[in-house]
């Protein structure tokens, strides 16, 4: 089966629809599926729910879908960098479900692994635990969190082969792996599609079984906080 598509718009064809729950990879602006987000904007799909650690910035990442009011709900751990997000949230236009970062990652991982719920001590005694089942194990209290089963996963990797085996680069791996696994369909955008056999099978970060469609493209890879030191300090 052919997995490679010409571009993000073609890869979304027949997949994207109104009201979808989409799991997206990335941390801040690092490793976000920027081409697919742009194409989702162009598709005009409405009332989308995103499970994504962050919401991008105003003009990049998921932020561009907030500008066009295509997002109904965000499931995130931190949304501090986005003014339009805050405006829509405070005016009641946008739903927001805060998840602790590790809980969000594990909810995606669990969903992808066929596990509908798990107990964690993260958030016990906080607002996160309100209305959730509590259970004691070995004298310690845990809360029940549910796996995320997304309609679509969109991720960004460094390299892929045409069977969808993926390799990520440095800290751009982040949420891309758990997000990819929890989607009914996963589309991966990569910097380079390499010939079959040229990736070391022992070095694959995400096996192609999780990836249904692949595109290659030019990435802006914007830096959110450029911090450096002077040579003299070394």
């Amino acid at each position: 089966m052919k997995k490679v598509y010409a571009n993000a718009t073609e890869a979304l064809d027949g997949v994207i629809s109104d009201g979808m729950m989409i799991a997206a990879g990335g941390f801040g602006l690092c490793g976000i599926p920027e081409l697919l987000l742009e194409a989702i904007k162009d598709s005009g799909a409405q009332n989308l729910t995103f499970a994504s650690n962050n919401a991008g910035v105003d003009d990049f990442g998921i932020g561009i879908l907030l500008q066009t009011k295509q997002v109904k709900k965000m499931i995130s751990s931190y949304v501090g960098e986005n003014a339009e997000f805050m405006r829509q949230y405070l005016s009641g236009e946008l739903e927001l479900e805060f998840n602790p970062q590790g809980t969000l990652a594990e909810r995606m991982r669990a969903g992808g692994a066929g596990i509908p719920g798990f107990y964690t001590k993260t958030g016990v005694g906080t607002v996160i635990a309100e209305d959730k089942e509590h259970k004691d194990f070995n004298g310690e209290t845990y809360i029940l969190e549910e796996g995320i089963f997304a309609d679509l996963a969109i991720v960004k990797a460094w390299k892929a082969d045409d069977t969808g085996n993926l390799i990520f680069r440095k800290t751009a791996r982040n949420f891309n792996v758990p997000a990819a696994t929890c989607g009914k369909i996963c589309i991966a955008e990569v910097e380079e599609i390499v010939p079959r056999g040229s990736l070391d099978p022992d070095a694959i970060h995400l096996p192609g079984i999780y990836v249904h469609r692949i595109i290659q493209g030019e990435h802006e890879k914007r830096i959110e906080q450029r911090t450096t030191r002077k040579k003299e300090e070394a």
Partner: peptide
């Protein structure tokens, strides 16, 4: 990193550009 050596794929949890060491390992969020 030194000026000019920033890598968009290499940031810390505060989203600042950083560098790796000889002992560094990378992994996913889960």
């Amino acid at each position: 990193p030194f000026e000019g050596e920033e890598d968009a794929d290499l940031i810390n949890a505060g989203k600042q550009t950083i560098t790796e060491l000889s002992r560094t390992s990378y992994f996913d969020s889960a």
